[in-house]
Amino acid sequence: MLLPDLMLGSTALLLERYLDILAARQRVTSANVANADTPGYRAREVDFRSEMQSFLNGGARGPFPAVTASERWGEGAKNDGNNVSLDREMQALAENGMRFSLASLLLQKQIRGVRNAIREGRG
């Protein structure tokens, strides 16, 4: 985690954490989809805002703590006690993908910037 601090600045570190949380969220979404027909399974979700907030409150530095997922309550469950909504998971999937590609594009730009600087320096 030292490298981004020195080379790419704090924005890159924020983006890295952002991607990290998105990956964790994707994992949770995949688990929900896989268990869409499992009796008694409760859908899980990652509280994006609080994860990012606790990272910022902690001084926005690595190493990254594990992302926590909690069970989703207060929603109608089917007769077998399962409360996964496939439509909702598909929405999360689409949103996650778009957020991920935007953030990774931004990170890519940052890396390109540094690479360009190195190339110019070499003349």
Binding site: L22, Q26, V33, L93, N96, F100, S104, Q108, I111
Partner: peptide, 19 residues
């Protein structure tokens, strides 16, 4: 739905590789 989830993850992995 599982295939779609797999596709989304693959896309994310490709983006990471692009970095």
């Amino acid at each position: 739905a599982n295939v779609a989830a797999m596709g989304a993850v693959k896309e994310m992995l490709h983006r990471s590789i692009d970095l």
